[in-house]
Design a protein around this nucleic acid. Structure first.
Length: 488
DNA sequence: TATCCACCGGAAGGTCTGGACT
DNA sequence: AGTCCAGACCTTCCGGTGGATA
């Protein structure tokens, strides 16, 4: 899941922005929502355009899906499937395909009564060894709880029947009613033993053994799906993967298989060779979609999402073309289409036109920037604000020293802690990675080596977002700081 | 050609928070 | 109350560096 794809939801609340509220004040009796409700809606079912929607059909991914299924089918025979690594850029359908396959796997396993479970973890959110293990442990403790409750129900039933007719025990593992009673008591005590793992506080090895015990509690094949696995490795090394991949040799009852999903083709370079070979037993690559394929996907979803004849002919090809430029990102294409539809709806037009797509493209980008900037920590905001002030005064190719000077003055003004230049360098690099600034290291010969920083987002909008922060907003007139820079 | 600027960026370690355990 | 642990966020230290200039 990525709740962070820039799809800020304005459609319901943001009525005063660019909606056509050209004031029909005479119709005082009309409620706020009446107009909006009455307009001929363009959407039939908008949900299918959202990233959270898992489609039942994934065009142009049949090959990858078949591959996955071929590997995972061993789970249904009660054997351990090979570990799988899935590669592909964002929006190439990795997660959707993997989720689709795992859902199928779980339903089939129920049909044939082979115990097989899939657990999904997004490592962008859960990005430390402790958290991954704790989350997995808790999920399995939960499942075990349910498993025990079911089993207790069955056994209770069996006990009652056996009390009347001992022949009921013939086909079971129990030879007497007392044996059933024993099993029930032991299960009941097991149920009490399972404590959930707290968010923090335990030593990691304890979390690991809790997780281990929970998985091994009864016979089953477990597939652990680690989405954005590269983020996990980047942040906390390969310990987690090492532990997970060698689990099988110690498990008595269950089998574990790992399915890693990565955006980064080269992330295995950072791995311990043992982990690398065990994890990459099978590799599946999801190539980016090309414009034609994106068009197919959009066409397919648009048929469900929009009312008929509401899309003009060039809308889908244009969305596909825009998204194909962004490395064939289908999620982006769907976002564009949805936003274009929303803009058309708000503009009270009956069809979605090419212009709406272009507007949507701008809006999505701006929304992303606003969201990223808004959620920045105060110190980063100050660093960014310093950059903006310089840029506003016509300084281009700003270097670290200049940013740091302005930043220091800003901090003094609002009485915030002043970080060291070393730390500020890191914050600048972070802003660079977020795509808010563009910082490249250049050498100016005799005049040193520094970063050359340029803003890569719209200046005024970004400044407005920064100033809406309660701390940063305290800087009333920043002009003197910049002026001081020119003075000395 | 050697020098030297103005910072880069890795490593290591400190401090604080928030929680569990004894 | 005191101890332990993980993790976030910083600081300190310091070797490294590309290329204009003396």
């Amino acid at each position: 899941m990525d709740g962070f794809s820039g799809d800020v939801d304005l459609e319901d609340l943001d009525l005063d922005s660019d909606a056509d509220d050209s004031g029909e004040a005479d119709e005082a009796s009309r409620g706020l929502f009446d107009d909006l409700l009455e307009g001929e809606p363009i959407f039939e079912n908008k949900e299918v355009l959202r990233p959270s929607y898992t489609p039942h059909k994934l065009p142009h991914r049949e090959e990858q899906i078949n591959n996955m299924a071929t590997i995972l089918v061993t789970a249904l025979r009660g054997e351990t499937p090979s570990n799988i690594l899935i590669y592909g850029k964002t929006g190439t359908g990795k997660t959707a395909s993997a989720k689709f396959v795992s859902e199928e796997l779980e339903t089939t396993s129920q049909k044939y009564e082979v115990p097989c479970e899939v657990e999904y973890i997004n490592c962008e959110v859960t990005d430390t060894q402790y958290r991954v293990l704790a989350q997995l442990a808790n999920k399995f403790i939960d499942k075990n709880g349910r498993y025990i409750e079911n089993r207790l129900e069955e056994l209770g039933d069996l006990r009652d029947r056996a009390a009347e007719d001992p022949a009921e025990l013939d086909d079971t593992d129990f030879d007497s009613v007392a044996a059933v009673e024993n099993e029930i008591t032991s299960l009941e005590s097991d149920l009490e033993e399972f404590d959930p793992v707290p968010m923090t506080g335990w030593p990691t090895d304890r979390v690991y053994s809790t997780f281990f015990d929970a998985v091994d509690y009864h016979e089953r094949v477990v597939v652990i799906m680690l989405d954005e696995i590269d983020k996990l490795v980047e942040k906390s090394g390969d310990d987690t993967l090492y532990n997970l991949s060698r689990m099988n040799s110690e498990l008595d009852n269950s089998r574990v298989s790992i399915m890693g999903i990565s955006n980064d083709l080269k992330f295995t370079d950072f791995l311990d060779p043992r982990v690398k070979s065990s994890l990459g037993e099978e590799e599946i690559v999801f190539p980016p979609y090309d414009a034609t394929q994106l068009r197919d996907i959009l066409q397919h979803r648009a048929e469900i999402a929009f009312k008929s004849a509401t899309l003009s002919d060039d809308v889908i090809p244009l969305c596909a073309a825009f998204a194909a430029q962004e490395h064939g990102d289908a999620r982006r294409a769907l976002d564009l289409l949805r936003t274009a539809g929303e803009l058309a709806e708000r503009g009270r037009t009956e069809t979605v036109e090419e212009a709406h797509v272009r507007k949507a493209q701008e809006k999505i980008e701006l929304d992303r920037v606003v969201e990223v900037v808004r959620t920045l920590p105060t110190q980063s905001k100050l660093v960014l604000y310093a950059t903006i002030l310089l840029e506003k005064n016509g300084v281009h190719n700003i270097n670290t020293g200049e940013v740091f000077n302005i930043y220091k003055r800003l901090c003094q003004e609002i009485e915030a802690d002043v970080l060291t230049q070393r730390r500020v360098t890191d914050l600048i690099s972070e802003l660079d990675m977020l795509g808010i600034v563009n910082a490249i290291v250049v050498s100016k010969g005799r005049y040193g080596r520094t970063k050359e920083i340029n803003l890569s987002v719209p200046l005024d909008e970004t400044e407005a977002v920064l100033l809406s922060d309660s701390r940063v907003g305290e800087v009333e007139d920043a002009q003197p700081f910049v002026q001081a820079r020119f003075d000395n």
